[in-house]
Simulated assay, not measured.
Amino acid sequence: MRDFSGGHEWLSINTATIRKQSGAEVPLDRIIDQCAERGIRAISPWRDQVAGVGLDKVAAQLKALDIRLSGYCRGGFYPAADAAGLKTALDDNYRAIDEAKTLDAPCLVLVVGSLPGALQGKAAYTDIGRARGEVRDGIAASLEYARKVGMPLAIEPLHPMQAAERACINTLEQALDLCDELDAARSGMLGVALDIYHVWWDPKLQQQIERAGHERLLAYHVCDWLTPTRDLLNDRGMMGDGVVELKKIRGWVEAAGYAGFSEVEIFSTQDWWQRSGDETLDVCIERHRSAV
């Protein structure tokens, strides 16, 4: 297992972690500069943040500062109430693939979606089996396009608490089953984004990480699970502040062949988003060395 204690060359910052600083939204170009000032070599930006600055401008800034991407957030949200909605979702995923290619991302992360309308409080239907079928078909179509463009897709399984609204793929095993169905040759074009916040509890986690291997492990996200958790979406913990065995799990991931970035992704309405971005980044660097 790699020794992170002496530096932070394998640290990446998911820009959600500092998209709010001292309670206010901060533009992506400023976030990129803050990372560069600390020698952080990689980020994973969100599409809305990129759009807020401009795709070409962000691409030029990253190139000038020699900052890479560890992933691009996000595609997915395939299920819809009708055929027109399914087409709209698929077209949006094609655009996300193109954006990821422009930014030279190693993968586009897919949060696959679930019951359409549930996030807004009114599900168009309640058949989660149908949603999973629409996810399967959407990923298959996206993969066909992604192969042409040369952009790998990374399915991110989300914690079961988000099965209705955000993702009906909830375990690493489910995600890998889809990968094996749609990419049996293990081409490197379809894999998973392993987010510790969502999968740390899974009794099959080590087994499924071994199953994934380096061909499927396309991204690795870290934070911590706080007890008690005050908000199931927006109360992620800084690494070392919670109950996740982060070093043990990274050992499993690296034993399976993963040698990429550890991407810090923290949504924290009540804590880290209330602090300065400079403080948050400095703590991320320290905890990457000591806790990840």
Rank of each mutant, 00 (worst) to 15 (best):
G240C: 06
L28W: 13
I67Y: 07
Y258V: 09
P203I: 07
L55A: 02
R250C: 03
M189R: 02
T17K: 14
A89L: 05
E165D: 14
Q206D: 04
T229G: 05
W252Q: 09
L172S: 02
L218Y: 06
A167G: 15
R136L: 08
H198E: 04
Y145Q: 02
G23V: 04
H198F: 11
K87H: 02
S44D: 12
P160F: 08
E99R: 03
Y197R: 02
V192H: 06
L205R: 10
L110Y: 01
P228C: 13
R186H: 10
L232H: 12
G76A: 08
A140P: 00
L65T: 02
E37R: 09
I285K: 07
R236V: 11
D278C: 02
L226W: 07
D177H: 08
R236K: 13
R2L: 04
T227N: 08
G242E: 11
Q120L: 04
D29I: 08
H198P: 01
G71S: 12
C223E: 13
R275N: 12
D29S: 13
A81F: 03
A123N: 08
W252C: 11
Q174E: 15
E156L: 04
D241F: 07
V199K: 02
D137H: 12
W10C: 04
I155L: 08
G237M: 12
I97H: 05
R95F: 12
D180Y: 09
A193C: 14
